[in-house]
Amino acid sequence: MNTIQNIQAEIVEDFEMFEDWMQKYEYLIELGKELALIEKQYKTEDNLIKGCQSRVWLHAEKQDGKIIYTADSDAIMTKGIIAILIRVLSEQKLEDIIHADLSFIDTIGLKEQLSVTRANGLVSMIKKMKLYALAYQN
């Protein structure tokens, strides 16, 4: 089963293989290039995440009780980071997203890889993803 917990464990395993920051960054860049892009019509001011230094748009759609996220950013590393979050949270049940414990972020050292301002952006992304789930639930 592709539960949030399982996917997190996979990502942690991926990151354990990396020996230095450069491999981690190259991985993020790769993920960024593969990110499922948001449709142009959703690249609106409303979908823009506040708190990120580069621009990040996030869109969420409900399908069969699950949420599908798409996103884009003008910076490739940011795209890589949001791609990881999407891999974990997209196509999951509303309930699971809202209560998700994203401990893998600390385990893989993603926050330490980012400067404080970027880490704030990461927190804003997660918050916005959870807020979408909450909004659809209500």
Binding site: W21, Q53, A75, I76, M77, R118
Partner: peptide, 21 residues
């Protein structure tokens, strides 16, 4: 078309402080 943040983040890992934005 590279975003300046991406450049700034990578050179930071090599000990270099530049500003981006």
């Amino acid at each position: 078309k590279l975003h300046p943040y991406d450049i700034g983040m990578i050179v930071d890992k090599m000990g270099i402080a530049i500003r981006t934005g």
